[in-house]
Write a protein that binds this DNA or RNA. Structure first.
Lengths: 223, 223
DNA sequence: TTTTTCATTTGAACGATGCTTAGATACCAC
DNA sequence: GTGGTATCTAAGCATCGTTCAAATGAAAAA
């Protein structure tokens, strides 16, 4: 049985606008924070290809060498950005799960929320995933934290009737759901699917439709 | 000028089956072919991050500007590499489908063959996918050609009993299978799954296990 | 208050990248 | 041969990630 763990910080610190020159106890104040914000701003506005370390420093109003006192290299900055992305994703899934009524809605809602997050934050999602891909591991917070997407999917599967004592089957099913969501998240933007989206009545309906053809999201398994 | 052997030409040891050097109507022969081979060689040996246009030119034994007479830019070279990757993938799926006996084996075999291809050609798979992602479209050969992965999955679903007249459901199911395979292909290398792979008796069994938890790969749907 | 300390930030520099331009090279048709 | 032309090289531009000695300035020590 899953215990409700204390939820500490539920919200990712919101991006600050560009220069906020009020209080700067040190030279810049909190340059680390400012660099992460600048990176997320650039990511949102210019896309992942435009995200150079020098551009981030420029955006933060600082010299190209300044970031190296707060991050070992470019990858470490991206890791920090990705970390906030994972927290945002966890929040989105928590909200989707809370909103759902039936068990089937919970599973489908989780999947759709996952894909919607990727659709609404395409550049951030790519950074999140590229970071974990290069490390050949899922970020720690995705599997360890109680509100991680992985745990939420697994718990929901148990609620939906999965045998919690068959750990292997449970992990396989969770992985299957994860793969399905990730696969759809990465392919959803392909123009090839435009006609399908229209045919089923919109993008969200398309996501539901795809998930309904996967066993872990099937209604007969939930109730 | 010092009379030495030309520095750039004829210096490529054909580590692999280098493109037939019989006919070289021009300076290098078929530099386009040599560049693609060099790119694939680098991709295999050094990984995707080491794949710079200059490094490809170096590997092919030509100057950094030479590739621009055969490819508009770096992306066009990668497109050519990706194209060959898709053809290899289609071949792998064709072989897997031919080998399968039962209908269920055909679907599962297709999925596993897809993931195995990605596992065995990780860098190539990434280039294949990044190329189509940036264009926001699946490569033409994946949906148009008769032996494309998409068509093979769709046809196999029909063989397995899907209603060929319900085009929307058929496309949704095909897409679902595709997403599942792609998602697993991209996550299969995560170390987080090592214990699961071991628990189920190997990597291939792990792939089968994940697919068996998705409806489109479920046995009860096939027969 | 003055001085010292030391993290923070800068400016300059290095090697490497993608790409462009101008010119040299060598194949082919004549 | 000669000329035309596709092919390739050389050199250069702007940008990138990264390093390092110097400069800056907040905080602690005097």
């Amino acid at each position: 049985m899953i215990f409700t763990a204390p939820r500490y910080r539920f919200t990712v610190p919101p991006m600050r606008e560009a220069a906020a020159p009020e209080s700067r106890p040190y030279h810049h104040g909190d340059l680390r924070r400012a660099l992460i914000d600048a990176a997320r701003r650039l990511l949102e506005q210019e896309g992942p290809t435009a995200l150079s370390l020098r551009a981030v420093a420029r955006e933060a109003g600082v010299s190209p060498a300044a970031p190296y006192h707060h991050f070992k290299d470019k990858g470490e900055l991206l890791d920090a950005v990705a970390h906030e992305g994972w927290e945002m994703l966890n929040q989105a899934l928590t909200a989707a799960r809370a909103k759902a009524v039936s068990l089937h809605e919970k599973m489908a809602g989780l999947g759709v929320a996952y894909v919607l997050f990727a659709r609404d934050n395409p550049s951030l999602y790519r950074v999140m995933y590229d970071g974990s891909r290069d490390k050949e591991d899922l970020p720690t917070q995705m599997r360890m934290k109680d509100d991680s997407a992985y745990c939420q999917v697994r718990d929901t599967l148990v609620e939906a009737g999965a045998d919690p004592t068959d750990e292997i089957a449970l992990e396989l099913a969770t992985t299957a759901a994860w793969c399905a969501a990730h696969g759809l998240a990465e392919m959803a933007s392909f123009k090839s699917f435009d006609h399908l989206k229209e045919a089923v009545g919109g993008e969200e309906a398309f996501f539901h439709g795809v998930f309904e053809h996967m066993q872990v999201f099937a209604k007969d398994k939930a109730d």
